[in-house]
Design a binder for these strands. Sequence first.
RNA 1: GCGGACGUGGCGGAACUGGUAGACGCUGCAGACUUAAAAUCUGUUUCCCGUAAGGGAGUGCGGGUUCGAUUCCCGCCGUCCGCACCA
Length: 839
Amino acid sequence: MASRFNPKAADARWQKTWDDAQTFAADNAAAKPKSYVLEMFPYPSGRIHMGHVRNYTMGDVLARFKRMTGHEVLHPMGWDAFGMPAENAAMEKKVHPGEWTRANIAAMRDQLKRLGFALDWSRELATCEPDYYGQEQALFLDLFEAGLVYRKESAVNWDPVDMTVLANEQVIDGKGWRSGATVERRKLSQWFLKITDFAEDLLSGLGELDQWPDKVKLMQENWIGKSRGLRFRFKLSQPVTGQTNLQVFTTRPDTIFGASFVAVAADHPLAAAVAENSAEAQRFVAQCQSGGTSAADIESAEKLGFDTGLTVAHPFQPEWELPVYIANFVLMDYGTGAIFGVPAHDQRDMDFARKYDLPVRRVVADGDDSEAEFAGDEAWSGEGTLVNSRFLDGMTIEAAKAAVIERAEEEGWGEGTTEWRLRDWGVSRQRYWGTPIPIIHCEECGPVGVPKDQLPVVLPEDIDFETPGNPLDRHPTWKHVDCPQCGEPARRETDTLDTFVDSSWYFIRFASQPDDAPFDRAEAEAWLPVGQYIGGVEHAILHLLYARFWTRALNRMGMLDVKEPFAGLFTQGMVTHETYQAGDGSWLSPGEVTKDGEDWVAIEGGEPVTPGRVEKMSKSKKNTVDPDPIIDQYGADAVRWFMLSDSPPERDLPWSEAGIEGAWRFVQRLWRLIDGNQPGEGEDKALDRKLHQTIAGVAEDIEDLSFNKAVAKIHELANAIEKADASASRDAAVRILVRLVAPMAPHLAEEGWAQFGEQGLVADAQWPEADPALLVEDEVTIAVQINGKLRDTLSVAKGAGKADLESLALASDKIMRQLDGAEPKKIIVVPDRLVNIVA
RNA sequence: GCGGACGUGGCGGAACUGGUAGACGCUGCAGACUUAAAAUCUGUUUCCCGUAAGGGAGUGCGGGUUCGAUUCCCGCCGUCCGCACCA
């Protein structure tokens, strides 16, 4: 009688065994091919959620599989441990951010360990510890010396009550999310990293990332936003504050003869100059600046302008004057903050021209319509031929662009340029719980880097969160230091670094973590780039772009011979669960509702409940499932199995009770196969074939990260084994099955491995080898179709000749009946596949 | 608005390069074992007609290419995601 697999006992036992043996510690000096498998490290919020479980399970399967296929695997784990929630907790619960964070890390580490991940815990790191952020400070100073760090005034969202800077997403309807105070735009001196220096390289580098999802590459491409165009100067009819020219940027220099106005942004210096002398202009500028910046605001915002009364001269015809407007739809921080409007070929300009009754001249002919007078309100921005444009007439858009740029450059009033949407990376945060920026401000010497032998600049522990504002700034002593250069009293920088800096190089520190340097070059290069990086698509742009930038910066400084940090990237889907909403709009957890006939009602009170959509698990929608009790009940392997089953990993995985129970049943079924295995005699060719096809198929699917398909293939094999009679083949299949499930259900596999008296650990075992001779069937099923419709199937030896297949097909009873004596018009035979009779 | 992805049974999904649509799992239904339940096992589960043999329809909708289309092409519809007045 087969026993039951008892995960409670087995999980802990094997986890301890792996731990004691340091099974998953990566050897930097190993001679084997190296494989670096990494999942995005978590923020230590306090609890692991199902999304983490799914993410880390995927990486774990790959890591374990790589070990079994002869690789030395680096699969580390750490904590993205700086950031706002710790400060919020400090304010709300009166607990020090460090204490809160470290307690969370301890709790989450325990949770992760219960899932039996093949992690090298000896390399664990937390970004909030001085041994990590001190090395980050060293790197920051290297960047500073290399001229990749600079300081400039920049506008931030300032909460006047909390006295802190808010991220854009913390500003809701113009108010601070916590204080509710109206957020001000304030100029602060901030530190920036010169990511724009690498714009071209970050863009072209995408081309080599053939193991990244196209979607992510496209998002990065759009974010970087390269556009070629012409930057040129209009001559102003009269000088304004000494300026005689107005510089504009356009990507459509070809439409220059369709221009009917010029517009500048509300915060353009020209607008400010006009506002000096006009109360009306001043009002208009103020109105533009107060406008909301949310997506909805922008979409609904009407195109508004203010006629300055100024004009500029058309570059190709000085007496042709264009009016200059201040317009609310022109952005100061793109291009030059000034544009020329071509209503016929740009919708925004069209809207504006129709409102202010400006000319709309056609300069690109769409088809045969070449009238200068443009009717309608829909601008034409498609392809066409230039018309009404003098020397450009008849040219294509591309040729005309080149011609105008050439003339501008010849005549010296403009030049072809490239503009980027990408901005430099502002890294200053006016907060406590982050990496202190290792700079000292001296009256005499300016900003001076902290000498490296004085690193780390450690956060003070004795801080209070009673009063709003940056605790570092109001700490009584911390910021007062002497200038390292001249020795005079000076002031420490009290801003800390954006936490995206912490995650921009942690994967390097995992590969190599000496005490006295950020990393050892040779060790880091031995592992990098990360072979497979797995995480959520929400990091598709910022984190991944910053990490690519940081790696390039190290490369440029000669510190690392790697430019792309992540060779392979995979973005996994979310774990979702159904939602339920009561009549008053409040959310109910799935455990609080039940089905009454066709309708859903609350268990408590029986109120009717509306089933909502299946959505990402979130506390606010009350549809989360805590992994801990699930692991208690079903064990790590069943949870892991469910995370891998059914849904393709890039898609969302709907959590369900039935699903986890199905996984649990299968784990038990596997155990019954193993435990109840009987030696047998003789071979079972069909089973041998199924086994070897599964060995090859599962390996392929895992390499492909198609875990759902690998799971399905293992199910098929298990079904086949169960149906098979005892034989030597069956015995062998069960023994090999143990290794096939080892990456997914490692505890069960170890148990089975031990049961069969194998040496060592299955975690160290070799992946079974598939016999190529057994991968192909010797008998195939041939479809016989009439006019493409299946009418019969034939079982024939593989490789049967066309003529044989044809005559076999025609001899079939069913086919003869269908044809009813009619002569086939044509017969198509695809060997080993089908015969299609055209009647 | 721009860009992208997706659309297959009651559900999650599978299907190689254009070649038997629905693998595998979940759910449901019927049955076996059991005093009973749990657990387990067997059968069945795309829809329609038919007792059956069998036939017909079918991969969002409409067309096209082809001996043959879930797969390729054109046009719609829907859902989701990203960006968003970027000149």
